[in-house]
Computed example of a mutant assay.
Amino acid sequence: MQSVTYRVDQSPVTPYQYLQDVEKYAGNIECLECEARAWYVRGSMSGGRERSACFAAHHTDECEIRTVVLVVDDPDVVPDEGADTARIVVDLDKRKAQDIMVPEPRDRQPTDTLWGAIHKKYANAADYPINKSLRQILSCLIKNPSYPEDDATIRIVCDGGRIALEGEVRQLLSYQTQLSGIDPGVVRLYWGLITNVNRKDGNTWLNCGDYRTEPSLLIRDEELEEEMLKAFRLKSLDDLEGAYFIVMGWLSGSETKPIINFGFAKYIAFVKYRVRDEDEV
Rank of each mutant, 00 (worst) to 15 (best):
E166A: 13
Y147R: 01
C158G: 13
R212G: 01
G160L: 13
A243Y: 05
C140V: 12
P79S: 11
R7K: 13
A164D: 12
R51Y: 15
Q2M: 12
S180C: 10
K143F: 07
E280Y: 13
R212E: 13
I154T: 08
D279E: 06
A26H: 07
D76P: 15
R66Q: 12
G192R: 10
G181Y: 07
Y128G: 11
I219H: 02
D151F: 14
N261L: 02
K94R: 11
Y6M: 03
E223H: 14
I194E: 06
K94H: 05
F262Q: 02
Y16F: 07
V169T: 09
W115D: 06
M228P: 08
S146H: 14
T177M: 03
A231W: 05
L179P: 06
D73E: 15
Y190T: 11
A86C: 05
R87P: 01
I259R: 09
L165Q: 07
I260K: 09
T14E: 07
R95V: 05
F232C: 10
G167N: 07
V22G: 00
E64M: 10
S139A: 15
G116A: 03
Q20C: 10
Q176N: 02
E280S: 12
L179F: 09
Y6P: 09
I65P: 00
C63N: 05
G160C: 14
D238K: 15
G161Y: 09
N196T: 13
A26M: 02
D112G: 02
E226K: 15
K143H: 09
A125H: 15
D151G: 07
A269E: 06
N196Q: 06
D74V: 15
I268W: 05
C140F: 03
W115L: 02
C208D: 08
F55A: 06
S52V: 09
E23N: 13
L172R: 11
N144F: 01
D159V: 07
E149C: 04
A265C: 05
N261S: 10
L114G: 00
D279P: 00
M101N: 14
R37Q: 11
L229D: 06
Y6V: 12
P105Q: 01
C31F: 02
V186E: 02
V78T: 13
V8H: 10
A164E: 12
P103V: 01
W250N: 08
P145M: 07
L234V: 11
C34Q: 01
R162V: 15
R66S: 12
E23T: 13
C63M: 02
Q171Y: 12
R188N: 07
V71W: 06
I137C: 11
D238F: 14
E81L: 14
V197E: 02
M45N: 10
Y122H: 12
E166C: 05
I163H: 04
V247Q: 07
I259F: 08
I65Y: 02
A123W: 03
C31V: 00
I156G: 04
L172Q: 03
G185C: 08
D74N: 15
Q10R: 12
D277G: 05
R155E: 04
E227F: 08
L70V: 12
V78D: 10
M101A: 14
N196R: 01
Y147P: 04
N131K: 12
A57V: 09
L114T: 10
A164P: 00
A86D: 09
